[in-house]
């Protein structure tokens, strides 16, 4: 551990749901600008891990730090931490009763206390980045899934987060819409955004990730650069998973 403090640090993190152990002894450091892809079979704890990072789930063992701040129950201003951590969900979760523009402006106004005119400018800026500024006055239901997910990414970016978490962002999409979302994510990576992506898009992992992490049964089984991860996986579980996912 040299140089600056890592942006995210997880130390021996564990999490139970009843008797089910969802996370077991997770250790992870993410430095600024790093792009990490997390993969693994369903139920392996990938989503739980990133949901712990912005405390949508509470871990019950170990410690999690965002910058210098530790996530604990005593933390007074959790929302100050959360606005530094952007999150994109599998099912988009846009606010259905607000137009796209209002979706992008709401948290800016309420959490960042950004004046309305400025919030609008920021929103339009990011809508242009995800290439759908002309849809600003539509409601989410009037857009395709791919468009909705791009809006969801723009909504998170409007908060100017330090790090972006993606929880299977393309899993709920029709195949022909996956690429438009991955393109936006790739652009984001090129601009130096720190990212943790839970995804099964191995092409994306290969071309974008600095590090690939494989999880199974609540544990990090293996991690490495995409080159070594895909060409020379060490563990049997990783090999089995890769053979299943790459065979189709």
């Amino acid at each position: 551990m040299t140089g600056s403090t890592p942006l995210i640090r997880m130390e021996h993190v564990g999490k139970h749901f009843g008797t089910f152990k969802a996370l077991n002894d997770i250790n992870l450091e993410v430095t600024k600008g790093e792009r990490i892809v997390v993969c693994g079979p369903s139920g392996s704890g990938k989503s739980t891990m990133i949901r712990c990072i912005n405390r949508l789930e509470k871990h019950d063992e170990g410690r999690i730090f965002i910058g210098d701040i530790e996530l604990t129950d005593k933390l007074k201003d959790l929302n100050a931490v959360r606005r530094e951590v952007g999150m994109v969900f599998q099912s988009f979760n846009l606010f259905p009763h607000m137009t796209i523009l209002k979706n992008l402006m709401l948290a800016q106004k309420l959490v960042r206390k950004t004046p309305k005119a400025e919030a609008r400018d920021v929103a339009m800026h990011y809508l242009e980045r995800v290439k759908i500024p002309e849809q600003a006055d539509k409601y989410p239901i009037q857009m395709s899934g791919g468009q909705q997910q791009r809006v969801a990414i723009a909504r998170a970016l409007c908060m100017k987060p330090e790090v972006m978490l993606f929880d299977e962002p393309t899993s709920a999409l029709d195949p022909e819409m996956i690429n438009e979302v991955l393109e936006v994510m790739t652009d984001l990576a090129k601009d130096g955004m720190t990212m943790i992506c839970v995804t099964h898009e191995m092409g994306f992992a290969r071309s974008v990730a600095d590090r690939v992490i494989f999880m199974d049964a609540g544990e990090i089984v293996e991690e490495g650069t995409p080159e070594t991860f895909f060409s020379a996986p060490k563990s049997e579980r990783t090999k089995l998973f890769l053979s299943q996912i790459l065979s189709h």
């Binding site: 952007g86 999150m87 909504r155």
Partner: peptide, 30 residues
């Protein structure tokens, strides 16, 4: 009200009162 929508609000840093006012109330009314 869809839990995912409320989670999205939570992830954006809206506090419980803000989530109730701006998300739960209008959607539940409908």
């Amino acid at each position: 009200v869809d839990r995912g929508v409320l989670e999205a609000g939570e992830a954006l840093g809206l506090n419980p009162r803000q989530r109730f006012t701006y998300l739960t109330t209008p959607i539940a009314a409908r």
